[in-house]
Design a protein around this nucleic acid. Sequence first.
RNA 1: GUCCCCGUAGCUUAAUGGAUAAAGUAGAGCUCUUCUAAGGCUUUGAUGCAGGUUCGAUUCCUGCCGGGGACACCA
Length: 527
Amino acid sequence: MKEKIENLVKDALKSLNLKTEGFSVEHPTDLKMGDYSTNVAIKYGHKDEIVRYIVQNKLPEIEKVELAGPGFINFYLSKEFFINSLKEIIEKREVFGKNENLKGKKFFVEHTQPNIFKEFHIGHLMNNIIGESVTRIVKAGSAEVKTASYHGDVGMHVAKAVWALLNNCVGNAYAMGNKAYEEDKEAKNEIQEINKKIYERSDDKINDIYDSGRKESLKEFDSIYKRLNTNFDYSFFESESGDIGKELVLDFLKKGIFEESEGAVVFRGDKFGLHTRVFLNSDKLPTYEAKEIGLAKIKKETFPFDQSITITANEQDAFFQVVEVVTGEVMSELKGKLIHLSHGMLRLPTGKMSSRTGNVITAEKLIEDVKKKVKDNEQVAIGAIKYMILRQVIGNDIIFDIEKSVSTEGDSGVYLQYAYARTNSLLEKAKMLTPSVNENRQGNIRGIERLLYRFPEVVERAGKEYAPHYITTYLTELAGSFNNFYAHEQVIGDSPESGYRLAIVEAFNIVMKNGLTILGIPTPERL
RNA sequence: GUCCCCGUAGCUUAAUGGAUAAAGUAGAGCUCUUCUAAGGCUUUGAUGCAGGUUCGAUUCCUGCCGGGGACACCA
């Protein structure tokens, strides 16, 4: 519809021998300003001529055109348009909202990245929820998508935990190991020794502890993924990416991309306006940086992607800027194909946390705490948490207020789930009646009609910008509009309009379900 | 010190350079006793400061103030 209007406006401009770009067609915020609006007349003048052309060549879907404000041209859609859009929603059902924007494109999405021997905390939870949602949004654009988790399975953090376990630690092994590392010189040396042995796999006892701990960690991650309804096509490990990364670095050291400095191998970022970063330390071991380019190579060979999205916390922004440039230098075919999406921190009003001291809030703890507030309903609890994270722009910190997240009114996942569940029972109750989009359309229902047909546009926009919050915002507005409709219209009844109203309820039901599903929020049938 | 991100109603957040800056919550008032009221209606209330760009700036540019982060061998 938007395109049709754009084309109409272009034709109008052509007829006046004007340029056909530089204007926009959009939905005004206020219903009174029409269903679509364009600013051409402000840009180009010739108000009256443009309007005259548009009126003369009026589209069948448009009922009224008017000139308003400083020169906006507003379009009002006709009754037939709304009737047809309801028909379309009901016919397309679970397909409604999908688009083919990204058809034929291959996407890799990497997210969550918990490290073995360390806890899966609320930061991972946030990352997972965003990653899962972005994955689904891209899929809704018909892209072919593969997902990956990436685990730190070697390195000092592992050695610290293994040391603690060797010393009969109970409780949080990583935190204890870290404490010893910082406070006890002897322990520090032992830990460094263990780190080496893990790489070499030269000590049976250490291997046993390492292997069983690794297995246990991965098992725990899987059980959380299951609860969150997320799954990964691949799992990658730093133990693999490290070697590959090191090779690449040594190779391109000869070609002058990297240089040696103080015994380490570094990349000089100044030519690109970035800072210098170490890729191999002075022991010639790969750092996180080298591992990351190794990982890019693994991904490329696993699934030759057009775009690879990596989701991390925003403290890594500068790091990823460097890695993106280096990856492009080392593997030119990946230039411009890496996207780094970063989010802020998830904070609880109670205070900050640190995984180094063991003062962390695990994902599980948060889920259980929320669950207690919602009559032990897992789907509602997960929905509440996911909504709170997806409702705002990716990148800012989130202050997670448990009370607000489970609020039954207003801006919450529960509110959306409830509105959806209610339509299920409404439709159940009305089973004897047939939803009909052909009967009389009466009543003050334009608000909800107007929102319903816009769903595919919203999904499309969210897909272009990887922005789940466009969808949450839309769904909340839609649910509000549904409540309004519900409060004022008799849905089930024998009036000639009730068939049409029932069709609205059905369409709402479909759109809400599809929207929540694209976000990854559970849709309980009854509440 | 250099670079990056963020400053919007009391609070939590929106706003592809557009019309009167939009919601939720909290506050005030009214309404319904139910096709799931977890409603509905009305109302109070905001762009950190100072410039610039233009028909128009929360949005772009410059400076300042305030908060967070990154800046060589952690991830």
